[in-house]
Structures are given as structure tokens and as C-alpha cells.
Design a protein around this nucleic acid. Structure first.
Lengths: 240, 240
DNA sequence: TATGCGCAAGTAGTATACTATTTAGCGCGT
DNA sequence: ACGCGCTAAATAGTATACTACTTGCGCATA
């Protein structure tokens, strides 16, 4: 028996999420507007809005104004998970080096699992992404974007949904550190990604893992050399 | 010019977090009360409360009523991270099998790193926890609690802060599935934990990793045999 | 007929005021 | 000295009004 009353806004938020789950509402579905929810949930407007705001910040829904507007179901991206994670890390006084360590530990696993589970289609998509990665080495922003895309494709190919989420969230976090890789590093990264992809194609999980470990070791050295102060910089909450 | 206006409540939440970060406020510190924040932030009460409610749900602060009450700085536990993660997973239509897969992938790494980095003090703490684990095999709840504690100690010993966070959040999630291990499994788990701890003590990372993989394979078989429907059950948002 | 401009309607967001609930602190009485 | 209960402070929740923004629709004009 819950002796301490659950918060009204929490209850409303849970009801909304439960409703979305039960009715299997796809992204883009219009939910009830505020005053309808006020009636259905039997809560005041402020309470309902607190719930909506929380779910919006978590990426579970978007809110749009105007006629035909209102709360709309949304599938949260990794950036929202990264936001929640970064908040926790800030309160744990974590530094970016901790984020990099976690990435260095997890990513090789993800790559190895991708080598075991990737379909030929997924390998093709990875090859296309790699091609774009080579072409984008000139532009720092474009390279970072394509690297992110490559990561996501690897995550999908690994068939390990949750692990992919976490790795991508960590990637998002380290991107947010303000690090900027130079052209030389970007080119080297692309070549390493190339070799990893070859290992994946050969279904050689061990080789892919080893290459990935080397790649992250190189990235670590890059940080140490070019931005040692960033390694000790505390993680702080990112809000998109 | 920021064309897309940042939400007032988001801005306030960010300011509060920023303040906590800059002043390095420890857990338990009383923050300004609502009406003080209303003045300082120049926002309405509803706005301030939306911000406070969000931070409360994220575990960044607690709110207490009554005199001497108000918002109090709090260090969020893994349960909050688990909550955020579960929300994301629900929207990704993830099942508990995905959570278990991720755990199976990450935990061996964590254990291996613990073998490399644990101090003798931490190994002592682990031994004590293991002892309690043996003693708690009679009681399902107590065993689950002590297993959690053991996990947390391993996470600390690994010195990999972020990885520990993630593993513990995943553990929290799988606990929340409603799984119940029988006595035989609890005893076997304790024995396996014992062997892993021995490997950690011997600084044998590879052995610890292999044992951990075996342990998770056994846990997987247990789920398949005793609760196959849970493996395919969708993860849904947990709100403590 | 097409196009652009503006008005109106509907929604999110903000502000203010009031009631209910919780609880620490204090005082009074036995 | 003990405890019962009052009170005040602070949040929780509700109600209502007002503001700002978005967008569809229609009218006027080229």
C-alpha cells in the first residue's frame, strides 16, 4: 500500500504514457488537448501541464500551438537519453574522461556483436556511410554528423537495441564536450572505420573488437594531446 | 538570435542546475523557496514549479512541505536513470530480452575492469557483501537487495563510473520485470559470484570475464525456462 | 483566377489568487 | 517533565483570467 500519496502530476504522466502504450499510438498521433485531459484526468490545468512538460522534456511527446495543434506522440531520440544521462553524471561529478572510458569499454562489444549479427543489407548501408565519411573529412561538422550516423548503423546491425542506445547516448555526450578533431584524425578515423567494417564483413568478431579498441585508444591519445583540459572537465546537463 | 524560443520552464530548470553546479552544493542543501525563485528567475509560479517538478522526477532534488521545507539538493540514484531509460525503451518497443542482452554484454566488461582496478578495501567490501548474499538465499527480497548491493560494489571497484551507472540501471530494470528467482538459482548465483570475486582477487580479468559470461548465460536460460513470457514482455516506464 | 494580406479562432503559455495539506516549532496544561 | 495541540510557514493543488503565438480561412485586389 502506498502510504505516501503519489504526486498528481506523476500520476497524470503515467496515465498518458500508459494510454500511449495500450493503444499502441504511433509517433505523430494527436493526443487529447489540455482541457480534455483536465476533464478525463480530473486534475487542474497546472498539474496536467506539469505532466506534459515532463514528457516533452523526455521526448515522449511534442507540443504544438495553433488550431489542429496540441500534444503529439513522439519517439524520443538518443539526445533525450543523453540529456537525462548527462544530468545524472553532472550530479555524480563525472568528467568527460569517465564518458570516454565507458565508450572505450562498450563500443568494442557493440562492434563485435555487429560482426556476428549484421545482415548484408546493413553492411551495405555501412559501406555507403563509410563512403560519405571519407568524402566528409574536409568538413568537421559533416564528418561528425556522418560518424554519428555510422555509429547508429553499427548499433542497429548489432541487434542489441539497448546497448546501441547507450553507446549512441555516450557518443552524443562526448560530442557535446566541444572537442574538435583535426583533419588528420578524421582521416585516420575513417581508415580505422574502414578496417572495422572489413572485419564485420568477414564476420570476424575478435578482429573487429581489437580494431575498435585500437581506435578508441587512438582517440584517447588525441584527447590527451590536444585537449587534456577537456578530459577533466565536468559533464554538465545538456538540454538539446 | 535564437529563433525557437527556449521554454521558460526549461530555462529555469537549467538555471537551477547551473547554480547547483557552480556553487558545488552538496546533497541536503536547502535551495531557495518557490517565491524566492519566482523573483530571482522572473518567472511565474507555474513555470518555476514545472521546472522543480521535472528536476524532482529526475532525482536532482527533493521537495518537502512544511516549515523548513522546500527544494533540497539530492543526488539522483540509479533508479532515476533507470526510469528515464525505461521510458525511452518503452517508446522503442523494447522487450526485457533486449535489456538482458545488454546486461549480458556489459557486465562481463565491468567485472574484468574490476579485476584490474579494485583496491583491497573494495575486495573486502565485496567479500562482506558475498557473505550476506550467502546468508540471504532463504529470502527472495533480501537476496535481490544484496545482489544489487554486490553489483554496485563491483561498479565502484571497476573505477568506470559511467559503465557502473548503466549496468546498475539495467539491473534495476530487469528487477522491475517481476522476475523471481527460486532458491536453487539464488544459491547458484551466490556460488558464481563467489568464483568471480576470487578471480577479481587474483587480478585475473579474463577469468572473471569468462565466469561472468557463464553466469549471465545461466540467468538467460533461467528466464527462458521459468518465465519465457517475460522475455517478450515490453519494457514499460517505471516511476518508483 | 490566382495571390497575398489580414482577421478570427483555437491552443499553449504566463500570471495571480485562493484553498488544502503537511510539518516544524512553540506553548500551554496536566 | 511529558505530551497534546495550536500555529505558522511552506509546498500542493485548483481556479480563472489574460497574453502570445500559430494557423486556417476568407476577402480583396491585381
Amino acid at each position: 500500500m502506498n502510504s505516501h500519496h503519489e504526486r498528481a502530476s506523476t500520476r497524470v504522466a503515467r496515465n498518458i504514457v500508459k494510454d500511449i502504450e495500450e493503444r499502441q499510438l504511433p509517433a505523430g498521433t494527436k493526443l487529447d488537448s489540455e482541457h480534455v485531459m483536465i476533464e478525463k484526468q480530473g486534475a487542474s490545468r497546472a498539474t496536467v501541464r506539469e505532466a506534459l512538460r515532463f514528457l516533452e522534456l523526455q521526448g515522449a511527446l511534442k507540443m504544438k500551438a495553433g488550431p489542429g495543434g496540441g500534444p503529439v506522440v513522439n519517439i524520443p531520440g538518443v539526445d533525450h537519453l543523453a540529456g537525462a544521462l548527462s544530468l545524472q553524471l553532472q550530479f555524480a561529478n563525472a568528467t568527460f574522461s569517465a564518458v570516454l572510458e565507458a565508450r572505450r569499454s562498450i563500443y568494442p562489444i557493440l562492434v563485435a556483436e555487429a560482426a556476428e549479427n549484421a545482415t548484408t543489407d546493413e553492411i551495405c548501408a555501412l559501406k555507403a556511410s563509410l563512403q560519405r565519411l571519407y568524402e566528409a573529412t574536409e568538413d568537421s561538422d559533416a564528418a561528425a554528423r556522418e560518424a554519428r550516423n555510422f555509429y547508429e548503423l553499427v548499433a542497429v546491425a548489432s541487434k542489441n537495441l539497448v546497448l546501441g542506445f547507450l553507446v549512441n547516448a555516450l557518443h552524443h555526450l562526448s560530442e557535446n564536450s566541444g572537442i574538435d578533431y583535426d583533419m588528420q584524425h578524421r582521416q585516420a578515423s575513417a581508415r580505422q572505420a574502414d578496417r572495422i567494417l572489413q572485419a564485420i564483413e568477414q564476420r570476424d568478431a575478435e578482429k573487429a573488437r581489437a580494431l575498435s579498441e585500437k581506435m578508441h585508444a587512438a582517440a584517447w591519445r588525441y584527447w590527451e594531446k590536444n585537449a587534456p583540459e577537456l578530459l577533466n572537465a565536468p559533464v554538465s546537463w545538456i538540454t538539446r
